[in-house]
């Protein structure tokens, strides 16, 4: 699997093999071809710009656009890669590289682990599901829904039993999303609930977790409401998107319709702290109505 860093190295290598002078002219002519709107790119790092730092919404690859403002306005309204000048089987090199770089970032989000340091910073301890590694996690969704025996033991000894609300963090399909958002959202939710007089259980981190693992967690800890903050399957727009799945008295095997989800938590979607405040209200509503999912609507 190629990580973003590795990809960068490969690109550097390829360009250096083309000869320094060639690469310079190449880069230069490329720069001539595209007008980049001010503020859209950062400093050139050792002759090579980190293309993932370019804001796609502000990057114009069309040479001499008829209506620059109009094109920018269209691009502002979509994360899609429009206005890339050449479509079909032959994109511009930059478009192709950026696509691969974003794809690599998405893959990294899936295949890397949430750093221990960040888990520690959030004051969480770590447990895992029945999966033994990433490959198994990806190929055996069923195992990602159950805590392993050790985890059950640890939760039973370390966590407050029968809390009103149990919150935990899980990697899901994007570790990057957890690293970017969980440290910001967790304190908002916990503080918000505590100040409303709601007891919050002991938060922890669950590795190799899929959403329905929350049902098992709920059964083990006998929580009234269970909320998992979990990384969403990454895409090419962002690899940092996180969701919160929340359910009232979740049970293993319960229908999906009993879950609430707040998705799209990332810097380009709902800011983490603001989503956290929204989740506080949602959890309070669940406690009041003693329901979640579709039952909450009815």
């Amino acid at each position: 699997m190629i990580s973003e860093m590795e990809l960068k190295k490969i690109i550097e290598q390829v360009i250096s093999e083309m000869g320094v002078s060639a690469s310079k002219t190449e880069l230069k002519s490329d720069a001539d071809n595209c007008c980049t709107v001010e503020g859209s790119s950062k400093d050139v790092d050792e002759d090579i710009q980190d293309i993932t730092t370019i804001d796609l919404k502000k990057q114009i690859l069309v040479t001499q656009p008829e209506n620059l403002q109009g094109l920018l306005k269209m691009k502002e309204n979509t994360p899609a890669r429009i206005g890339v000048w050449r479509a079909g089987p032959r994109y511009k090199t930059e478009t192709m590289l950026r696509f691969r770089a974003d794809h690599a970032a998405a893959q990294d989000a899936v295949f890397t682990d949430v750093s221990e340091e960040i888990i520690k910073k959030m004051n969480l301890f770590s447990v895992k599901t029945k999966c033994t590694d990433k490959d198994q996690y990806l190929t055996r969704p069923d195992l990602g829904r159950i805590l392993d025996d050790e985890a059950v033991e640890i939760l039973k000894t370390k966590c407050i039993k029968s809390p009103k609300v149990q919150i935990y963090v899980s990697d899901g399909l994007s570790s990057t999303a957890i690293e970017a958002n969980a440290p910001e959202i967790l304190p908002v939710i916990i503080q918000g609930l505590k100040s409303s007089g709601v007891t919050v259980g002991t938060p922890f981190f669950l590795k190799y977790g899929r959403v329905p693992a929350m049902d098992h967690v709920s059964e083990v800890l006998e929580a009234e409401v269970t909320c998992v903050l979990i990384g969403e399957r990454p895409g090419l727009v962002t690899a940092e998107s996180m969701s919160a799945y929340i359910a009232y008295k979740a049970k293993v095997g319960m229908p999906e319709a009993k879950r609430n989800v707040v998705s799209n938590i990332h810097k380009g979607g709902t800011p983490a702290v603001e989503a956290g405040a929204h989740i506080v209200d949602l959890i309070k509503l669940m406690l009041e109505k003693k329901a979640s999912g579709l039952d909450l609507k009815a």
Partner: peptide, 17 residues
Amino acid sequence: NDIAKALGQTLYQMLHR
């Protein structure tokens, strides 16, 4: 900017409700 809900909640806590 989109922060009013979190900010409002935090302020309310700080002012001891």
